[in-house]
Design a binder for these strands. Structure first.
Lengths: 402, 402
DNA sequence: CTATTTCGTCATGGCGCTTAACAAATTAGT
DNA sequence: ACTAATTTGTTAAGCGCCATGACGAAATAG
């Protein structure tokens, strides 16, 4: 059984482990890793002052982390200040790697990320997976994972875990795809089908996208609402730096928030759901464009050319998003709304109406709207980084695995 | 962040404490308190097995807690089991007390709750506060607090803190009332106006109500959505046993979630907000009843008598609530929706349409809807208990204050 | 009445951090 | 250039906190 990823930082309450000295040590190892990872090369003394331990204590923690290959000593810092210069520490570039994978509707992608956050290996296979049975798709994915792992190992890394982003709802066991409408997969446990010898985590691509935003975004706050859309409309809620998952793991589903309660019927049983105004299919219909491959690119292209029909359709979608987000902002009072995934490319034409609606309805206090810099890369990077974060969160667990 | 979210108490420790042995001790003291508090009289051995420490360690923890008056020894248990009987421990009934206060539109109330959760003193003053200036109201409240504190002290308790529930939005400093429309108070720091010599916390009554539900409710899950309505429509989101507060402290505001985006204009600047369909004023208008005192009681009475106009109005309100809650349930995937506050009394006529709408729009997975047992008592009890919880969460802090 | 079981305590020990002192490496001042 | 001051990293001693193991106490089982 694997420790839950990107859950609470070990020092947060709620865990039922006995609070003993081993636990203390583990948490302090984690704090050293987090500090060094977040604030670049740092001397032992700098780490000590940041986390509130003494230099002596940090020294022993660092020794252990260096022995297990999680930290590296870069050598003496260049001294601009008085006093003996410290010895700079960094997270290792030859230690564990997080393997991220993405099952997209039109592609498969895998990458390896080291502790420093650098992408060290990638592999992609283009071609639609719509309606294909799981076995061949997952077989191809496993092959790509094998390639990436081999390449990472050639660079001196060893894979610490595999995280797979899926375009659909995933149960809280982090293995079972409950419903992926665009793949036509249902209630499918991916565990036995991905025979990599690695701890496996499966999650919704919107969830991984929002985590990528949290971890890699430029000025992403710790409380935000992430909106993305690949085919349906995904969303995710991040509160205090943690992803809100919900009872069944379905939290963040914006697509079926009622926008116009008496609107057209939706497959979900409701009426006037957001997806019927801002979903890809609906927007294409309103824009008078046929379905096909890379329809987001097509929309962006036409909008950029000044196609008013397309622009109006996107404006309408933005309005609908604004209405749905008003409800969410009222409920959650987030610090920002981040528009990501495929929506990021359409932001120039969505945002004006979206922001207008949001500003009007939340009178004054409003909420900042930002566009993701990561765009469609989010889910893959988020997946890989989730493995890296798990290592930072509990380095002692990694050490046990050599 | 280390401390629970609902802990806005001034004594709450800095969030980045170094993880040292003192911290470990503090956390273990807290775990002993929580365990004894939650699972009734327990022997040291029983506590030890529950929290995963040894009997020896628990003994020293318990000794310290008894010395500081937070635990009491009841004497030997009388069990039919083999072996030496343990000595039963309970949280003290003569130690610290939580003082809770409520500023209602039509009343003021104060109570004292001991560590066992028993209400040991109360005081109420009826009479409207609508539009009254803050000073006299808070003066009366302070007098009531004085009475209750005196009575609690006669019973051998000492006040550990004061928590005040307010019908309006409260900033994250837990002291400033940003907007209380029915009192007509704005941007008011209650700190200097309540000169009780106690740590003060101020919060929205809906927030305290939801915490009461969490702590005192019969089978309340750790993830739920609380809906209450006194005049406006309050709500609160509880995730993993913690209250979600939001960036400005405004999270949970359901009243201005858009229900019909082209509906009538709202004071908030939006259109078709929930408050215009399920707010007290709107319901009264739809029911053809005049405003006045205890209008909720009137509505309940008329509905019980079979007044169809009233029943229709409540049914409409339920539908609107169902639509707004559909959005919230989609976004948060909570384990339950709990209807509380003044709405609890109207539940028989609100719930059918509310549940129908929710079930239809969330097809299948839905969400349980429950009615609060606490009803209008929630905010006051939640306020008092929030102080008690702060003591349980960090008993060492209390010990320092003798 | 003895054996067994469980509870609470005590003495001992280990682990992990702090304190204090020191050598090493740099800058500041004369 | 040389000394004083400053900062780093390490080391040894010490203390706090929990684990271990043994013990007496208090109940039940036979």
């Amino acid at each position: 059984m694997t420790a839950p990823l990107h859950e609470a930082h070990p020092s947060s309450p709620g865990r039922r482990l006995p609070d003993t000295q081993q636990g203390m040590r583990r948490r302090n190892l984690a704090r050293v890793m987090h500090t060094v990872s977040a604030e670049g090369p740092l001397s032992r003394a700098a780490v000590a002052s940041r986390i509130g331990l003494t230099r002596a204590a940090v020294s022993t923690l660092v020794d252990e982390l260096i022995r297990t290959g999680l930290l590296e000593e870069l050598g003496p810092e260049r001294p601009g200040r008085v006093g003996r210069p410290g010895s700079a520490l960094t997270v290792s570039g030859r230690g564990p790697a997080g393997i991220g994978a993405e099952i997209g509707v039109d592609h498969l992608a895998v990458c390896a990320v080291d502790l420093r956050g650098a992408v060290r290996a990638r592999a992609v296979r283009h071609g639609t997976n719509r309606g294909r049975p799981p076995q061949p798709v997952l077989g191809e994915l496993t092959a790509l994972v094998g390639q990436v792992v081999a390449e990472a190992e050639r660079e001196g890394l060893w894979p610490a875990g595999l995280a797979v982003a899926v375009p659909g709802l995933v149960a809280r066991d982090a293995r079972t795809v409950v419903r992926a409408p665009n793949l036509d997969w249902h209630d499918l446990d991916l565990g036995p089908l991905i025979p990599a010898r690695l701890p496996l985590t499966v999650d919704n691509e919107a969830n991984f996208g929002s985590l990528a935003e949290l971890w890699l975004g430029e000025a992403t706050p710790r409380d935000f609402l992430h909106v993305s859309a690949e085919i349906g409309i995904g969303g995710a809620v991040v509160v205090d730096g943690r992803l809100l998952r919900g009872t069944h793991g379905f939290a963040g589903e914006l697509g079926h928030v009622p926008v116009r309660p008496d609107g057209p019927e939706c497959a979900c049983g409701g009426r006037g759901c957001l997806e019927q105004y801002a979903g890809e299919e609906a927007v294409l219909r309103a824009a008078g464009l046929p379905p096909g491959q890379d329809r987001v690119g097509l929309l962006a292209e036409r909008a950029a050319q000044g196609d008013t029909e397309v622009r109006d359709a996107l404006g309408e979608a933005g309005t609908a998003l604004g209405i749905a987000l008003t409800g969410a902002v009222n409920l959650l009072d987030p610090q920002a709304v981040v528009v990501g995934g495929a929506l990021a490319a359409l932001a120039p034409w969505l945002l004006p109406s979206l922001e207008r609606e949001l500003a009007r309805r939340t009178a004054g206090r409003g909420c900042a709207v930002a566009v993701s810099r990561l765009g469609p890369e989010g889910p893959l990077l988020g997946a890989a980084h989730s493995v890296v974060r798990a290592v930072l969160d509990d380095p002692a667990a990694v050490a046990e695995r050599v």
